[in-house]
Structures are given as structure tokens and as C-alpha cells.
Write a protein that binds this DNA or RNA. Structure first.
Lengths: 230, 230
DNA sequence: TTGCTTTTCAAACGTATGTATGAAACTATC
DNA sequence: GATAGTTTCATACATACGTTTGAAAAGCAA
């Protein structure tokens, strides 16, 4: 059918333009011009502008989530049902970082689009992101199996910090590059993944380490952090 | 002069509305209605809508940066010119986290405004954020003095990860709360600061470990697209 | 072909928005 | 209290935007 061609052309053009110029600067007229289709085609095929954006983001999110779960499953099979915590965290942050960072990814429209989505956070995308919690619960469950001793609170903070480091690196890679005057190599994706995973695993195993050697200012009691006055 | 009253009323109303409803949903007409001033007053006093937003953000940013530097200076004086790395990181993330988190801050318009600015990232604000690098360099310098053995690369990654955890916690506090089903106490600001500082110092202390020896091998798994996720 | 559905198209619609205008009201200095 | 400068106000402007419309074209089954 020719209708699929139009649909695909709109999707491709929209993703390219949004990736290059951001959501705020791209209008439907820009998109249909790039796709060489009629203006009304967007509303005919997608219903509205927001639904077009949502479809773009959902498609890419599903791909990432799929990769994450595949890596997690592979790690669990390797470990006979219980994956090592390092591999779990690697499965969590690896696909996103590999997808959005690295020198070969400069030309990838999908990657640049996802970076934009991470930075600008437009309403239709925010709505979809809110559903991501269910997906993350699978990783929380895997972490619980890998570290039975840790409390849920600690696991969630670890998961949260892992995503924080990964996403913030993607969001602010330009700034980090400028701040470090190029010393932080953002093309070394594997190194960055190792870095994030190592820090996260350390944070997760922190309780035990602190029991033997508590740090100076923030003190750990019963595996929990307690406040220290300024 | 009465003109200062109008100016202040606009600023207050704008900050309140932006904090509550976000930049995308608030028009100049909403603001002047809230402030009980004429529509033209915004352009008369600020030049344009973007300059109004910029002034709001600059004001709040300066406050945060001043608090950071004050804490840093206090820590350096305590240590006789060289602050402990824990205190440096605490000075970096403390003011932001205290400003944007905590139960008593629910009513703080300024805090909610800064959270919005962190999430939505509108053009005039992005422009200002790019200048933040100079401010961060002062913290990089303090870190270098506190940890002479560490390479600049490691220091920048530590600084970057500290900001990542702090900002991501502010940005995604709703999601973390939902994911952890309330187990992560986001009202315990001091505890969160301790957590971020501890993890960051650990990351900085481990240093060469992460750079030289990765903990596990990366496994590439490619996924196919289905609707079952998300 | 005929008749029906799906898709494309040019044009228009409605409106929300930031900004500009010019006169009126106000303020301060002499 | 007259004059010059500042601030306020109602109103208009321009126009960019997503969406809708209704007809034409294309596809398709009989």
C-alpha cells in the first residue's frame, strides 16, 4: 500500500528533524516538507502531532527495553538463574549508553532523537516515560535476587543512581566535554559503562564496606545513612 | 517608584505560575492576570518573555552558586586552606538538594521553579546553563587540591557523577518514589546528601581500579522490536 | 466497467501568542 | 503648576500553528 510509504516517510522525516533541531523548533509543516507529503497526512495517519511524537518515542523505547531485557536474560542464564549484580547493572545502562554515545553514533538519527527526548521532555514523551516504572521493576527484582542481603531501599537507590549517571552523561555530554577540556573521553563507551557499573556496584555494597571502615563525615549505622550537621 | 512594584509582581507571578504549570502551559496573559498588571508591562520592563524567564533563572542560580561557594569557602577555612573532599562534594550538591527537596520545601515557589527549569529546559534557560562551566571549575580546582594524586579525568568524572545523582534525584523524584513504593524517603534531604557524597567520594577514591580493570565483559545482544514491553 | 473505500491534496479555519502602538495617567523637578 | 520623563493601559497587529474540510485521486473488489 502507498499509505505505508507516507506513514514511514513522515516518521523518518520527523525523527530526523526533531533529532537535529529539537521539538520546540520543528513544526508539522517542516516535517511534511521534509517528507514530501501533504500537511493533512500527519493528522490522517497519526491523529495529531502529539501522537506522532509518541509513536516515535515508543518505538525507540521498546527497542532499548528489549535490548536491556535480552542482556539481563543472557546474564541470568549464564549464572544459572541468578545474574551477577555487575551484569544486571550493565544490562540496565549498557543499551542506552551504547545507543546514545560513541563516535560511530554521530550519524544515527535514532540516537540523536533519544538524546533530544531526554533533554527536552515534551508532554507526550513525559506521559510515556511514566510507564517505564514497570520495566524497571524487573531490574529491581533481578537485583534483589543477586543481593539478598540488601534492603529494598538500598537497591532502589542503586538503581536510581545508575540511571542518573547514565542519563546525565548523555544529557550533559557536551558540558562534560567542555568542563574537562576533552580529557573525559566520551567516545569510549565501554569505558563509560564500566565506570557507571563499578560505581553503582560500589554504592550497592557500600553498607558492608562502611561497617569495617566508616568514612569521616557521613556515617553509616545499620547499613543506613544518618545525618551529619553542617 | 511604583514601577518596581509592577516588576516584582510580574516576577513573583511568573515564578509561581511556571513552578506550578511549567513553561509550556503559561502565557504572558496568564502571568499579567496573576500579577494584576497590564499585558504590555512585561515587554516594557523586561523586553521580552525570554528575558523575563532568564532573569528569573539567573536570580535563583546566583543564589545557589553563592551558597555553594560559601560552603566551599567555609570548608577550606576549616581545613586551613585545603578542604576535605567530602566537604567539597557536600558544598556542591548540598545547596541544590536542600533547595529542591524536603517536606518543608513543598510551599517554596523558588524550589519548584528550579525543578521545572531542570526538567523542561527551555531555550533561555539552556543558554544560561551553558555558562555554569566556569562556576564548576572552581570546584574542580578545590578537588584537585584535596586529591593531588588523582588525575584530572577522574576528578571530572567524579564531579560529573555527583551532579548526575543530585540533579537526577530532583528531576525524577516522583518516579523514584513510585518505583520504590515510598521506601526511598525523599524528605530526608540530609540523608540523600550523605548518600550522594559518600558514593561520589568512593568513586573518586577507587580511581585507577575502574580505569584499568573493568569488572566484567560486555555482552552484545541485539533485540527485535515487539509491543510487549512498555 | 461500476461502486465503494482509502488516501491525497489545496485551501481554509480558528485561535493562541508574543509584541508593538499611541494615548492617557502618573511622577518628579523646577 | 507647568514641563519633561516615566509608567500604565486598552487595543491592535502579525502570524505561526495544529487542525479541519470537502473534493479529487487512487486503489480495489465485483
Amino acid at each position: 500500500m502507498a499509505s505505508d510509504q507516507t506513514r514511514s516517510a513522515i516518521l523518518a522525516a520527523a525523527e530526523r528533524l526533531y533529532a537535529d533541531r529539537g521539538f520546540g523548533d520543528v513544526t508539522l509543516r517542516d516535517i511534511v516538507a521534509e517528507a514530501n507529503v501533504n500537511l493533512a497526512a500527519v493528522n490522517y495517519h497519526f491523529g495529531s502531532k502529539d501522537e506522532l511524537i509518541a509513536e516515535l518515542f515508543v518505538t525507540r523505547s521498546i527497542q532499548t527495553n528489549r535490548e536491556r531485557l535480552n542482556e539481563l536474560k543472557a546474564a541470568e542464564e549464564r549464572g544459572g538463574g541468578r545474574a551477577a549484580i555487575e551484569d544486571i547493572m550493565r544490562a540496565l545502562v549498557g543499551p542506552t549508553l551504547r545507543g546514545c554515545l560513541g563516535p560511530d553514533r554521530e550519524g544515527s538519527t535514532a540516537a540523536r532523537f533519544m538524546i533530544r527526548a531526554s533533554i527536552e521532555s515534551v508532554p507526550p514523551i513525559r506521559r510515556i516515560k511514566n510507564r517505564e516504572v514497570d520495566h524497571l521493576r524487573k531490574f529491581a527484582a533481578a537485583m534483589r535476587r543477586a543481593m539478598p542481603g540488601r534492603s529494598d531501599t538500598e537497591l532502589y537507590w542503586g538503581l536510581h543512581f545508575a540511571l542518573a549517571m547514565a542519563h546525565h552523561t548523555i544529557r550533559e555530554k557536551e558540558r562534560l566535554l567542555r568542563l574537562s577540556e576533552g580529557k573525559c573521553d566520551l567516545d569510549d563507551v565501554a569505558g563509560i559503562i564500566d565506570r557507571v557499573v563499578t560505581v553503582t556496584v560500589m554504592a550497592l555494597t557500600m553498607g558492608e564496606m562502611a561497617a569495617s571502615k566508616p568514612p569521616a563525615r557521613p556515617t553509616l549505622v545499620h547499613g543506613r545513612l544518618t545525618r551529619q550537621d553542617l
